[in-house]
């Protein structure tokens, strides 16, 4: 499923990287410990996290995620958004918490909604 479909179906806010919504989402990964994300997430994952500091961009770029989804409506640092633009990373945001967002996304990716 394309990122833009997820945005539409989960009513997500696009914070950065509007131009890259055609990317294909292959799966999901939820986590806030950068070392775990580096070790466990896969290319093409949507990464769900409440971390908002600039280092998440480097991690996401390195792993080749299709998008970062910030949960619980966390306020994202300006610097993070700037870095995302530089690295061509899409940042999405939802008021749902990680549990609910992961639940919804996994239902969406597995059954198409």
């Amino acid at each position: 499923m394309k990122v833009k479909e997820i945005v539409k179906k989960m009513k997500l806010k696009v914070v950065a990287g509007k131009d890259f919504l055609e990317r294909e989402a292959k799966g999901g990964y939820a986590g806030d410990l950068l070392s775990d994300v580096l070790a466990g997430s896969k290319e093409g994952d949507v990464w769900l996290t409440v971390q908002v500091h600039p280092n998440i961009i480097a991690v996401s770029a390195m792993k080749g995620h299709c998008a970062i989804l910030i949960t619980s409506s966390k306020t994202i640092e300006e610097e993070t958004i700037e870095k995302a633009k530089e690295e061509k990373i899409t940042i999405l945001s939802t008021p749902l918490n990680t549990f609910e967002a992961a639940g919804k996304l996994s239902r969406l990716l597995e059954n198409g909604g």
Partner: peptide, 19 residues
Amino acid sequence: TPGYSTAPDWIRELGFGAG
């Protein structure tokens, strides 16, 4: 300010420093 943090990465890896 929510989200403002001066925590180094190793603190964040402990699950803290989210501001």
